[in-house]
Simulated scan of single mutants.
Amino acid sequence: MEKIKVGVVGATGYAGAEICRLIAGHPAAELAAISSVSFEGQALSDVYPAYREMCDLICTTQEAVVEKSDVIFAALPHGLSQELAAECDKKGKAFIDLGADFRLKSEEEYTEWYGGTFTDKALHEKAVYGLPELFREEIKKTKLVANPGCYTTAVPLALVPALEKGYIETTGIIANCASGVTGAGRKPAQNSHYPELNEGMSAYKVACHRHTPEIEQTLSKISGEKMHITFVPHLLPVNRGILATCYAKLKPGVTEEMLRAAYEERYGKEPFVRLLPKGKSADIHNIKYTNFCDVSIFTDLRTGTFIAISAIDNMVKGAAGQAIQNMNILFGLDETCGLKLVPPAF
């Protein structure tokens, strides 16, 4: 069978480079073309020497990427994907956007949180939110996928089974999350400068992080009512990983046994969600470099609080791996194709 030809726009950023790394080991896909504004004319392996003799493609133009590819991954800052998506749509190419341009269904919210507008409202109607564990059937029917971000994957996957069953209150939910520094992107900034970051941990963008409306959109769709959460992200002095610790009020009469049964039912057949045994807590070390989401659940009966903890690699399940999972769905492949990755034990 002829391999799927993959194009990556923004290939030299962390998410774009991670797509290239994963596609290099994909049995049913191959890199056809890559682009980078900052490194046009240079080989990806010159930017990332670890890729030498594994991924030596030369960075070209966006136009060349679209022409040579069956599916285009866009790893671009918000505001830069809409025109490219329209071109791909016109040419009948599959388009998977790792940026934020198609994630929010409300243009009003997009304007509030990102300062932009929907340049083609009909195109936005075609976009499907690409969280496979929740919206798999919708993804199968589109060619335009809005790939979720890292926090926006970790928090819903931690909470959805309890929310679906009506076992927790829809108000007062708190998502206390911590991220590795690759989530800030490759461009240097003071808070990700090594001396500033090392041996520290701090909250950032408290009560104003752009992933807030995206998380709320997913939870609201699942619950059937408009939801608001308190979301506090923190920066960890590590390269990779998201740990999301989520707190919600238990409804009267709900037991830990009921919750565990709900999570086993919801995720029992999901290849990338691992429900941990009772008493075990999710750890970013155990999902590193993989597309797994580890989930652990606890109840605090003294306070009537449900605690759900999820761990993902923000560069894989939180970005590139999930994007490839979506590609596999679009092209009728097994979702695990190219993503059967074993985490390092130490």
Rank of each mutant, 00 (worst) to 15 (best):
C55D: 01
I284F: 01
K226G: 15
A154I: 05
M1Y: 02
S106V: 07
A15L: 06
L31K: 01
V316F: 04
E30W: 12
L275K: 00
L339A: 03
S220V: 10
D89G: 07
E138M: 07
V206W: 08
K143Q: 15
A43D: 08
L104A: 04
L104F: 09
H209D: 12
V47D: 04
F118R: 05
V181N: 13
A308G: 09
L333H: 02
G13T: 01
Y204I: 15
Q62H: 12
D70N: 13
E53V: 05
E40T: 12
Y247F: 15
A320R: 02
L31C: 02
E264H: 14
P252I: 09
F95L: 10
V342Y: 03
H211T: 11
E18C: 06
P77Y: 13
C59I: 02
V6N: 01
N286C: 07
V65A: 08
T290Q: 02
W113C: 05
L219Y: 02
K165Q: 14
P27W: 09
C150L: 03
G41H: 06
K226Q: 14
S106C: 05
E164I: 10
F346L: 10
Q217C: 06
E270V: 12
T60S: 13
A178C: 15
S220D: 09
R302A: 04
P237D: 15
A29E: 06
T60E: 01
L157T: 03
Y247R: 07
T212K: 14
A162D: 06
G338F: 01
R302P: 00
E112I: 05
M201K: 12
G318E: 02
M327F: 04
F292P: 00
L236R: 13
G224R: 04
A178D: 12
L197R: 14
E164H: 12
A74Y: 09
A319Q: 01
E112R: 14
A43R: 13
K221Q: 15
A85D: 10
S310I: 01
C208P: 03
A122M: 09
H124L: 03
P343C: 07
C150W: 07
Q42W: 09
A282M: 00
L330T: 03
A146T: 12
A146Q: 07
V66R: 05
V316H: 07
G268K: 11
P277I: 00
N326C: 13
I174C: 10
S81C: 11
A85K: 08
T255A: 14
S192I: 15
A50S: 12
K269E: 11
I72C: 10
Y263S: 00
A43E: 08
E196I: 10
V295M: 00
Q62L: 05
D101P: 08
G149F: 05
